[in-house]
């Protein structure tokens, strides 16, 4: 009797494990991008924008404004790759500093760090592929 219960439990467990492994590819990619993106963020962005994405005073803008990140999503790749010299408004506060370019980041690195930023600090925008990054970069000003 006891054995039967154990076997049933084990059976159910393995069934659920099989189901879980059948996540769609984007779901897996999302997680992979997010984790790798965190590492890229720590290396290239965190010093100024902070571990909590809050920036620093009006020197470095926060990444917690989901509106800006949503409205400018297809500019993010260009900003990350080529830097930013324009004055931008975040929550009605002007930021006129220069953000340095990151020419060494590959398209996939940029996609990963965008997935991390746009799904952290209160943002929830989902997946972004390196193909989308490639398209964005072709349209940089």
């Amino acid at each position: 009797m006891r054995n039967r219960i154990i076997y049933t439990l084990l059976f159910l467990l393995s069934i659920s494990a099989v189901f879980h492994s059948c996540q769609n590819e984007e779901g897996i990619n999302y997680k992979r991008y997010y984790v790798n993106g965190k590492g890229i963020y720590e290396k290239n962005c965190q010093s100024c924008h902070g571990a909590d994405g809050k920036g620093l005073g009006t020197l470095y803008p926060p990444l917690t404004d989901s509106l800006y990140l949503k409205q400018n999503k297809n500019k993010l790749a260009c900003i990350i790759k080529n830097g930013q010299n324009e004055t931008i408004q975040i929550n009605n506060v002007p930021f006129d500093g220069n953000m340095p370019a990151n020419p060494n980041l590959a398209d996939i690195d940029i996609a990963q760090v965008i997935v991390y930023i746009t799904n952290s600090f209160g943002n929830k925008q989902g997946f972004y592929s390196d193909q989308q990054v490639l398209n964005d970069l072709n349209n940089c000003k």
């Binding site: 100024c48 620093l56 470095y60």
Partner: peptide, 12 residues
């Protein structure tokens, strides 16, 4: 853009 922002975030 390397260690200074971190230093001055802490110094603040």
């Amino acid at each position: 853009t390397t260690i200074c922002p971190v230093m001055h975030r802490n110094m603040l």
